[in-house]
Design a protein around this nucleic acid. Structure first.
Length: 468
DNA sequence: CTGGATGATTGGCC
DNA sequence: GGCCAATCATCCAG
């Protein structure tokens, strides 16, 4: 039998096969019988290549450097030559021979087309199972965050802008060491950024290398088994998905690193500095002179902030803390309150004295033009020195129950209050009426006296704020 | 080193 | 949105 007759016989044998039988090499061999032994061999070889493991295939394809060998030809038979040539380096000789023989065999195109037909059907069944999915919202979130933190954005500006914004948000006193910590933060952020980008680059490189490798592999295999371009595309998409999940891990850990860095460097609590003495004094003066309503307006807050060289939110924080801590333990603040009341009064006295000198003595309230007016002094006196109606004797004299060491200042205060508003005004005004904190902890309309010299503070209320 | 003081943050409420 | 209350994290004097 020459080649031609063998081929014809082979085709005739093949024609008798049903579609299902073709899928089974054993049944093919059974039906072909001994005379068509070579066709059975061919089939076996095809199946062997189809079942070829990835490692074997890799050994065949990977050494090639130039993509030129798989690009050109549409003819599978021609591909054998090209494939054999490219796979030359380091391949077992018998393998090359087998492959070459298979590719050159006259039966190969016929068998290949049958395989294509089968593949077409099976591919149809799996097509549509996995189509391109929408962009992962989580990875978008991570991207946005990295962009906002200045890690994944443009090289310059993003990071420092974010750091500056964070530093501004942290507030705090403009200490000299703030700059050092800030630059330290930027340096660390830049380090994270660098690591992130180099890792990202590595992943991208690895991804494209692996994609190329798989594409080469598939194209190489497509010469001996049917692989459509769509399948290759799908495979590439799968690879990209896998790598993007790795990228997401990288982004996640980068975000975590940035968060830790931020909390370490920019958390204001970690940079807390006590306000300077002057600032505390200014705030305390305002607080105790407005004890009836220690809620500074926006304008007052701004003014205090300016005076103390702190931010408005720090003023708000300070008043929030002060109110709550004062309320919790009035007894503890008694002495402080006395001191500030006296101080306020003394200040008022000096203002008043200046005013008296400057103006007519007949204008006793002329000193109220300062930041803390004389009415404040009266307010303070009423609030802290017990100028409650019940504490006034019949002659309108205040019965002051304060420490002996404060007596000189109290005398001054007496003087001041006589000079300025006078007891009548104080007692008839509503200044001290709302100074009291009631049991419901409301600052206004309370029941217990504002007299800080005899505070009814909760017995044994030992400052629960320091529970930590 | 320790405990109180204090500035800042957070969560709930109105 | 401002305030309160609880809490955290740090400062600082003893």
């Amino acid at each position: 039998m020459d080649d031609q007759t063998r081929m014809l016989a082979g085709l005739a044998g093949l024609g008798g096969l049903s579609q299902g039988d073709i899928g089974d090499p054993d049944s093919v061999r059974k039906q072909l019988g001994q005379p068509q032994q070579d066709i059975g061999d061919i089939l076996q070889q095809i199946m062997a290549i189809t079942d070829e493991s990835l490692d074997e295939a890799q050994a065949r394809c990977w050494p090639e450097e130039s993509p030129a060998h798989w690009g050109g030809s549409d003819d599978p038979t021609e591909g054998g030559e090209a494939g054999g040539g490219t796979a030359g380096g380091g391949l077992p000789l018998n393998f090359q021979h087998r492959k070459h023989a298979l590719n050159c065999h006259r039966m190969k195109p016929a068998l290949f087309s049958v395989l294509c037909e089968i593949k077409e059907k099976t591919v149809l069944s799996i097509r549509g199972i996995q189509d391109e999915d929408p962009p992962d919202p989580q990875i978008m979130r991570l991207d946005n965050m990295l962009l906002a933190e200045g890690v994944s954005g443009p090289e310059k500006g993003g990071g420092s802008a974010a750091a500056a914004a964070a530093a501004a948000a942290a507030g705090g006193s403009p200490g000299a060491d703030g700059g050092i910590e800030h630059s330290d933060y930027r340096a660390k952020l830049a380090q994270i950024r660098q690591i992130y980008h180099s890792e990202l680059e590595k992943y991208e490189q690895a991804c494209s290398e692996f994609t190329n490798h798989v594409m080469n592999l598939l194209r190489e295999q497509s010469r001996t088994r049917p692989i459509s371009p769509k399948e290759i595309e799908r495979m590439v998409a799968i690879i990209h998905r896998k790598f993007s999940s790795i990228q997401m891990q990288l982004k996640q850990s980068t975000c975590e690193a940035v968060m830790i860095l931020r909390s370490r460097f920019l958390d204001a609590r970690r940079k807390r500095r006590n306000f300077n003495k002057q600032a505390t004094e200014v705030l305390n003066e305002y607080f105790y002179s407005h004890l009836s309503n220690p809620y500074p307006s926006e304008e007052a807050k701004e003014e205090l902030a300016k005076k103390c060289a702190i931010t408005v939110s720090q003023v708000s924080n300070w008043f929030g803390n002060k109110r709550i801590r004062y309320k919790k333990n009035i007894g503890k603040f008694q002495e402080e309150a006395n001191l500030y009341a006296v101080k306020t009064a003394v200040d008022a006295a000096s203002v008043s004295a200046q005013a008296s000198q400057a103006n007519s003595p007949a204008t006793p309230n002329s000193g109220s033009s300062g930041s803390y007016s004389l009415s404040h002094a009266g307010d303070a006196a009423a609030a802290y020195l017990g100028l409650h109606p019940s504490n006034l004797n019949g002659a309108g004299e205040a019965v002051l129950n304060i420490a002996p060491s404060l007596q000189p200042q109290v005398d001054t205060l007496h003087h001041v209050t006589r000079l300025t508003a006078g007891y009548e005004e104080l007692t008839s005004s509503s200044l001290y009426a709302p100074h009291h904190l009631d049991t419901s902890n409301s600052w206004q309309d309370n029941t217990h006296p504002s007299c800080v010299t005899s505070p009814p503070g909760p017995p044994g209320s030992a400052h629960s704020d320091t529970s930590n």
